[in-house]
Nucleic acid binder design. Structure first.
Length: 425
RNA sequence: GGAGAGGUGGCAGAGUGGUCUAAUGCGCGGGUUUGCUAAACCCGUGAGCCUGUAACUGGGCUCCGCAGGUUCGAAUCCUGUCCUCUCCGCCA
């Protein structure tokens, strides 16, 4: 969420930002309601002040008659307060609805455009695009030939979008996790395994919508819990309602979780194979920083994503995400798109965002500087280290050989325990 | 899942309808004393929001897990709910 006062004082800027992002939010109405809300709040507080005064005077009343008269006065005041407060609550509810729909501001350098066609390529990985002297297969065909993925079994058990990993694919998953943790721990990230469920308040705080027709989220019946779509949710929730000492920042965490996504409305185009699935495992980076440090931290997370894929020797490009393609909480976002020979194009494998204080305000995550009065909101950032399903696609497709085998990336060989995955006889 | 106990400031912990403007201790900040340090003593010490003045000193509302209720008035009484702890059951 943006600061209410900021929206009122910068209505034009906020409106323009909504236009850039393709978000319809009635800023004019928000400003009008907010101004009215403040007047009502002053009125309620004034009535409360009077009622408190009256209540205090009752204990000191001289006789029963005076006491009764004062009680009556108190009753009237409380009644009036309730009327005004009811109006205030109604106003606040409508205000909140608009407030939640207003996206974060956008970094001035982020490309302006309505969708991913406006994303701007800003860098390339170290590894050149592979040249095959044979027709490369996609990961579905490779997975079948090497007996690595069972989509039919997954569908039988849980429906389309679920799968079993088998054999070396399992070891690849572990190796990718171990590899990512190794790189991140050396950079001072605290490794964590995280809950795969979170309360709906935490989901909303991080900008996810637990229910409704468009939701990406699986919710648990009769419980205030949902399956997480990413450890960003739980790691962000870690500081919900907390105030940390400024000295404790930045906090760099990396969390392993399963990720569950309904992918409502996303069927069709990329629904084949592992690219868009309902469940996958992910190592996620998350950082809480001081406001002045978040921009540098975004660069840090982006560098790490690049290092991880350079280390895997997989070719990729980095794109600066266009305003219309940013999620609500993101101020700026870089996606890393790996070269996927199976489709002959780039596909998003990781993503890192600076959410500035947008999530922190909703989560109420603050920091305090020793000796200074008051508290301020922290900044939050997230970035994918490795999303296993998509990383698997990139590995299998880029490392495939003419004889049908797949070479294991050097950095994964120790955990996988072999240099090459051969077709089964 | 069952039974019991409990959720109060950074922490510990008192507070059973109005003097709670939440005691006290610890911690923390500042000061006095003092070769240095320590001790002792003194003073101070929460957050959010609204609002004020040209500016400074200000003024007010809310917050005792959370949400309701009773009352002129609730940390305190009532209802619901969440969480924590102990014991029991089940269990990787």
């Amino acid at each position: 969420m943006l600061d209410r006062k900021f929206i009122v004082e910068n209505a034009e800027l906020v409106k323009q930002n909504c236009r850039n992002r393709g978000v319809a939010a009635d800023i004019d109405r928000f400003v009008a309601l907010e101004n009215e809300r403040r007047l009502l709040q002053v009125e309620v507080e004034e009535l409360n002040r009077k009622a408190n005064e009256v209540s205090k005077s009752i204990g000191k009343a001289k006789d029963a008659g005076e006491r009764e008269a004062r009680k009556e006065e108190g009753r009237m005041l409380r009644e009036r307060t309730n009327e005004v407060r009811t109006k205030l609550d109604e106003l606040a509810a409508e205000l909140d609805g608009i407030h939640r729909s207003i996206p974060n501001l956008s970094h001035p350098d982020a490309p302006v455009g309505e969708d991913d066609k406006s994303n701007l390529e800003v860098a390339r990985g170290k590894t050149p695009l592979p040249k095959f002297d044979f027709e490369p297969l996609d990961h579905v065909a490779l997975g079948e030939r090497l007996d690595l993925i069972d989509f039919e079994g997954g569908a039988r058990v849980a429906g389309h979008g679920f799968y079993f990993l088998k054999n070396e694919a399992v070891l690849l998953e572990l190796a990718l996790q171990r590899y990512a943790l190794g790189v991140l721990m050396a950079e001072g990230f605290t490794p964590m395994t995280t809950p795969d469920l979170a309360t709906n308040e935490v989901l909303e705080g991080t900008g996810y919508i637990p229910r409704g027709p468009e939701t990406q989220i699986y919710s648990i019946e009769n419980q205030n819990l949902s399956l997480v779509a990413t450890a960003e949710i739980t790691l962000g929730g870690l500081l919900a309602g907390q105030t940390v000492d400024a000295d404790a920042l930045p906090l760099k965490l990396c969390g392993i979780s399963h990720c569950f996504r309904t992918e409502a409305g996303a069927h069709g185009k990329e629904s084949r194979g592992l690219f868009r699935v309902h469940q996958f495992t992910k190592v996620e980076m998350f950082a809480f920083t001081l406001p002045d440090d978040s921009e540098a931290m975004l660069g840090h997370l982006r560098d790490l994503e690049c290092r991880l894929f350079d280390g895997l020797e997989i070719p990729y490009r980095v794109v600066d995400t266009a305003t219309g393609d940013l999620g609500g909480p993101a101020y700026r976002k870089f996606d890393l798109e790996a070269w996927l020979p199976g489709r002959g194009g780039f596909g998003e494998v990781t993503s890192t965002s600076n959410c500035t204080d947008y999530q922190a305000r909703r989560l109420n995550a603050r920091f305090k500087v020793k000796g200074e009065k008051g508290t301020r909101f922290v900044h939050t950032l997230n970035g994918t280290a490795v999303a296993i399903s998509r990383a698997l696609i990139a590995v299998l497709e880029n490392y495939q050989q003419a004889d049908g085998s797949v070479v294991v990336p050097e950095v994964l060989q120790a955990v996988v325990g072999k240099e090459r995955i051969e077709p089964r006889s």
